[in-house]
């Protein structure tokens, strides 16, 4: 499943380039200088214990969190800085949330079409057609008219993925997409994510699913105390880790 070429962080034309990213909440420094490159089509999985700054790092990329210092570039364009058109930027960055966050008053279809209509400016028919295509891709074409409360958690999250993918972003951010789900519903969401990768989507995934990291990631990034402790192939990081810190983490994750 892993592509043979993705061995090292791509240096040429990365889709996402993070340099010296810092973020403080009050006196607490959550990110202490993160550097990260993600190449086109690459699936990078960020792992680490809770509180290591994984989610915050992800949320800085589309500026749901405001970085304290450092630069982030997406598709060559600087994300940080006062003059950035946030709405234009976010259109190019899809996000899937731990809390799923479907709009409860809209059907699955309505959840997907909203941004297609209001952000991408598509007409009613066109946006619905596109939304149905993307619901089809996550295997939920038959649930287009269901409301979120009528869907299982796994189905909801798949709609969440369709909602983000429908805008055809340059990169997809997954913030612990399966953490809120019952264990038996995790698989269907991970399967959709695998398919997303197979379609060539660039993905940055924060997750605790070690199997997913091992089997799907081109590269695993281990974060610890607000910085990248190590990165490399899933084997390097998760199977034969060099750091004691990571060995402890892997052992505990297996238990």
């Amino acid at each position: 499943m892993r592509s043979a070429t993705a061995i090292t962080p791509a240096s040429a034309d990365p889709i996402v380039a993070i340099d010296g990213l810092r973020k403080s909440f009050g006196n607490v420094e959550v990110l202490r200088g993160v550097d990260l490159r993600v190449a086109k089509g690459e699936a990078v999985v960020i792992v680490g214990s809770s509180g290591s700054g994984k989610s915050t790092c992800l949320r800085c990329i589309n500026r749901l969190e405001e970085p304290t210092a450092g630069t982030i570039r997406v598709g060559g364009e600087e994300v940080t800085g006062a003059k950035v058109d946030l709405n234009l930027l976010r259109r190019r960055i899809g996000m899937v949330f731990q809390g799923i966050n479907l709009y409860p008053h809209k059907t699955a279809l309505g959840n997907v079409t909203l941004a297609l209509r209001k952000v991408a400016g598509l007409g009613k028919a066109e946006s619905e057609q596109k939304a149905r295509q993307h619901l089809e891709l996550v295997g939920l074409a038959h649930k287009a008219d269901s409301y979120p409360a009528q869907l299982s958690g796994g189905q909801q999250q798949r709609v969440g993925i369709a909602r983000a993918m429908a805008l055809e972003p340059q990169v997809m951010l997954f913030d612990e997409p399966t953490s809120a789900l019952d264990p038996e519903l995790v698989g269907e969401v991970l399967n959709v994510m695998v398919r997303t990768k197979e379609m060539g989507m660039t993905m940055i995934v924060v997750t605790h699913e070690m199997h997913f990291a091992r089997d799907v990631a081109d590269r695993v990034v281990f974060m610890d105390h607000g910085a990248v402790l190590a990165e490399g192939t899933p084997e390097d990081i998760l199977v034969s880790p060099q750091h004691q810190r990571i060995r402890d983490f892997v052992t505990r994750s297996r238990a």
Partner: peptide
């Protein structure tokens, strides 16, 4: 209304007012 509703709307590129009108106010 959960903060995640704002985040979901804004993450798809909807502006503050659009998120307010289409996502938050109906709820």
């Amino acid at each position: 209304v959960a903060k995640g509703q704002w985040e979901a709307g804004r993450s798809t590129g909807l502006g503050f007012n659009q998120t307010l009108v289409h996502i938050i106010l109906p709820q």
